[in-house]
């Protein structure tokens, strides 16, 4: 496993109006590994994830200070093009959110808006993304069907394919399995572990078992503060922080 830092979060503070949601959060996310952000619900873990690709920009009341450095550049620097940032940092949401288009067009959407290749190339890239997302075998004969005809688990893998089709280096997953049945969840988790060879993956989850199964590193958030971070194995077996220990023992929801 490569230990090289891909994303460095430094002194990150976020306010929604008068609410101080993230307090001085700082830790490193290594390349080509799965990093899990854990914590009880409402601790700010999704908000933290959405800082990385600046999705919080869409919320007018959000105020952010501190830095998130990807490849040596602060994503909040005025020089950074947020559109380009989001192409380089893909995201999959809590609930599958395919567009009301065909399966093919869903995956092709990002390629088309960024003008990545002619129609032959788009076709090839769509296939590659669907193969990587472990969905190709299931949909190759029905690419023109509406994406809503897929099952929930398939829809979520489709969203993953859509995210990786544009060739991001980093993939953010926001509780991607929370709306899925156990079987689909297992399939998705396998996929996540496979994908880390090519991508740096950050996953938000409130499910500790899931974090233990898929992640190499993890960060534990509590009421907007970082309680602890490190190798998953170490955080789970020898937590340094009392709050982490309580959470692992099931003392918080």
């Amino acid at each position: 496993m490569s230990g090289e830092t891909r994303i460095a979060i430094e002194n990150l503070n976020l306010h929604f109006g008068a609410n101080h949601v993230l307090r001085d959060v700082g830790f490193n996310i290594p390349a080509n590994a799965v990093t899990a952000i854990m914590g009880p619900s409402g601790c700010g873990k999704s908000t933290l994830l959405r800082c990385i690709n600046r999705m919080n920009d869409l919320i007018l009341s959000a105020r952010i200070t501190g830095r998130i450095v990807i490849d040596g550049e602060n994503v909040y620097s005025p020089r950074v093009d947020v559109i380009d940032l989001r192409r380089r940092v893909g995201m999959v949401f809590q609930k599958p959110n395919p567009f009301p288009k065909s399966i093919f067009e869903n995956v092709a959407f990002g390629l088309r808006i960024h003008r990545l290749g002619d129609s032959g190339e788009i076709r090839a890239r769509v296939e590659k993304a669907l193969v990587q997302a472990n969905l190709w075998e299931e949909v190759k004969d029905r690419l023109q069907d509406n994406a809503f005809s897929l099952s929930g688990g398939q829809q979520q893998r489709l969203c993953l394919a859509r995210a990786i089709a544009v060739g991001p280096e980093i993939v953010l997953l926001d509780e991607p399995a929370s709306a899925l049945d156990p079987h689909s969840t297992a399939k998705l988790e396998e996929l996540i572990v496979e994908l880390k060879r090519e991508y740096t993956i950050v996953i938000v989850t409130h499910n500790m078992q899931q974090a233990a199964r898929v992640s190499d590193h993890c960060a534990f958030l509590m009421l907007g503060e970082l309680a602890e971070w490190g190798k998953t194995e170490q955080v789970f077996t020898k937590p340094k922080d009392k709050r982490t220990e309580d959470f692992l023992m099931g003392k918080f929801g």
Binding site: N56, D57, A62, T65, R67, P78, D81
Partner: peptide, 12 residues
């Protein structure tokens, strides 16, 4: 190097 940024200062 803490710089205040946010939606008000969306670059480019």
């Amino acid at each position: 190097m803490n710089r205040a940024t946010g939606p008000g200062a969306i670059p480019r």
